[in-house]
Simulated scan of single mutants.
Amino acid sequence: MATSRAAGRALDFLESGKNLAGSACGLVGVGLTLTGVAGAYWPAVVAGLYAAGALVAPPERVAPPVPPEPEEELRFVRQDFARLREYVAEVDLPGEPAGILAGLLELYAGMLEPGWVAGVLATEPEAVHALTRAIRTDVPECVDTYHRTRWWTRLAPGGEAPERHLVRQLSLLHEEAERLTADLRETEVRRQQTHTTYLEGRRES
């Protein structure tokens, strides 16, 4: 494995712009040697010209990372959502936050439904980002911090019940999910209206 990596790096260097520029300048040194200009110092002349060519050659351009397409990103989000469902299925939540969480997961599942539904979602990068953030970070953080706080509350009773914060957090995420679904619905409404306008214009033409 190490040998193949070393061979790959060596091949990359041989094909690099710096090596090609250095080799071109080195050939000039060889030409000077053949014409007798370099004299007895021809090895130093050839090496020097090669080094000079390699130094002045522009650095290799490293291609920036390409972000995944929305459709590809949704595939990863579905995998994360499946893991989230497995996680929350193992936790014990009081009745009210459990009900809010169940409704929230239903909204997420609806938006991630494979087919034309996810196709609409994929056209809205901001919605994909918001959904990804909620599934990967927000919901797990809500549940995890609730359980941690509840554990400490049992040791030192008093203060605000952790259930209140959990209900508020999940309610805010539910409202966000409802806004996302409303925005996606509005996208389809505009599409329908655009098609109506197109058909009306075609009739009048």
Rank of each mutant, 00 (worst) to 15 (best):
P94R: 01
E96D: 06
E96K: 11
P97W: 04
G99W: 06
G99P: 00
I100T: 15
L101I: 11
A102V: 03
L104S: 09
L105E: 01
L112R: 00
L112P: 05
L112V: 13
P114T: 08
W116S: 12
W116D: 09
V117S: 14
A118F: 10
G119I: 13
G119F: 01
L121Y: 06
A122Q: 07
T123C: 10
P125Y: 14
E126Q: 10
A127G: 02
V128C: 11
V128T: 09
H129Q: 12
L131H: 08
T132N: 11
T132V: 03
R133Y: 12
T137K: 09
D138G: 04
V139G: 01
P140V: 15
E141V: 13
C142P: 08
D144T: 09
Y146N: 06
Y146C: 04
H147R: 14
H147N: 02
R148Y: 10
R148L: 08
R150F: 07
W151Q: 08
T153H: 01
T153C: 09
T153G: 07
R154S: 01
A156K: 01
P157R: 13
G158R: 12
G158N: 13
G158M: 05
G159L: 05
E160I: 13
H165S: 14
R168S: 15
L170F: 02
L170M: 10
S171Y: 02
L173W: 09
H174S: 15
A177T: 07
E178F: 01
R185T: 11
T187A: 09
E188R: 11
Q192G: 15
Q193E: 12
T194M: 00
T196N: 07
